[in-house]
Amino acid sequence: MSQNPLPTNGEGHNPLWLACINQISATAELLRQLEEQKVQNEDNSKQKDNDDLRDLNQTLIVKERQSNEELQEARKILITGLSHVLSDKTDIVIKRMGEIDEKPFLNKFKKSYRVDVAMVKAAEMQSSWQEKLSNPEWHPFKVVIVQGNPHEVLNEDDEQLKYLKRSSGGEIYKAVTKALKEMNEYNPSGRYVVSELWLLKENRRASLKDVINFMLQNMNNPKPKPKRKRGLEESSGKSGSKDKYI
């Protein structure tokens, strides 16, 4: 996919993104070191006083929590900072998790109404179901045990979901339940749409490593200059030549 280059200074580097990359890398390295320290503590547990080991583990847990919070904050900064760079033509996009796709609603109403009317009705129905998703009192999930661990799964026997599937068909049902699962995974307490960095070609959440690689690959890519208009070439006596970058 084509990429929109990141803004750079005169030397071809973007100081803000370089600083961000360095901060993320340092935090990730700290997490790696903390994990190694935890493993080492487990190996040495028989040789140390239990109280000392407990205090050390508690310190590591606090540092790990702080580092994870820093990484989450870094993701938010990246989402904001890259919003003007990312598009549906870049490898990484910003996906709105928990937002219902309006296309199935439009397809439904286009079968019975003019396009302008269908667009209004589709928007109204999509908005109505989006509001339902935001209601914390509606939680159509159930807990099942998988290999001894509890997991939340969609409760397909929920009355509102059954009505939706029966009255509107499978495509709209899939759109609503997909957004419902996303919201339950990414923002179950707030119950509102959140933005996430998404690796489009693999259809998954982009890791910080993915984002850093994207930034490094595009940081020095110069924007192609506009093509010369054929009319200008013809007026200068160069008719028949191909457009070139200038």
Rank of each mutant, 00 (worst) to 15 (best):
C20W: 13
F214R: 11
F109D: 09
L197N: 13
K242G: 11
N14V: 08
E102V: 13
Y173D: 00
N22P: 08
E234D: 15
I212E: 11
P140F: 03
Q160F: 06
S239I: 09
N22H: 14
P7F: 02
K223D: 14
P224Y: 02
P224I: 04
A118S: 09
C20S: 12
E42A: 01
I24Q: 08
T80C: 06
V93T: 15
E99H: 11
E156D: 14
E64W: 04
P15F: 05
E233T: 13
E69Q: 03
W198R: 06
D158K: 03
A19D: 15
V115M: 09
R205M: 11
L82S: 06
N203F: 09
L71A: 02
K229A: 14
E171A: 05
E64N: 07
A123T: 07
R75A: 07
N203K: 14
K132M: 01
V194E: 07
Q217R: 12
L16E: 15
I94C: 10
S236G: 11
L31N: 09
R54M: 09
S236A: 14
R75W: 06
V62Q: 02
T177N: 07
S45E: 15
P5T: 11
N68Q: 06
S2V: 13
P224G: 03
N44D: 15
L216Y: 07
N68G: 06
K46P: 03
P7Q: 10
N22E: 15
M97D: 05
L133A: 01
V143N: 09
R75K: 13
R166M: 01
